[in-house]
């Protein structure tokens, strides 16, 4: 599983595929205080990225992979 829900935190792990985007979106719309943990994320399909961008959940941990982190920063860490 690349998408694991623990309480109100969604863990995005390894490769999150395009098929996961709908699940993620549904979960985030139903959990207004839902958070995401990106610690072990290697790559997520752009569909997931735009779900995160549109719903702006709180990020509890940023990716350990520096390249993944750089791209997520570019999308989510904007003023």
């Amino acid at each position: 599983m690349s998408l694991i829900f623990k309480g109100n935190v969604a863990h995005l792990v390894d490769q999150v595929t395009v098929e996961d985007a709908e699940t993620l979106l549904e979960w985030l719309t139903q959990q207004p205080v839902g958070k995401v943990n990106l610690k072990k994320l290697e790559h997520l399909h752009a569909a997931n990225l735009q779900v995160l961008m549109a719903t702006c959940p709180k990020v509890t941990a940023w990716p350990a992979n520096p390249d993944t982190r750089a791209w997520l920063d570019a999308a989510l860490q904007q003023s």
Partner: peptide
């Protein structure tokens, strides 16, 4: 990375 057009409310978003 920016949205091409402003995001719709979460309930109306099409992830795909």
């Amino acid at each position: 990375i920016r949205p091409l057009e402003a995001w719709l409310p979460a309930a109306e978003i099409d992830a795909y």
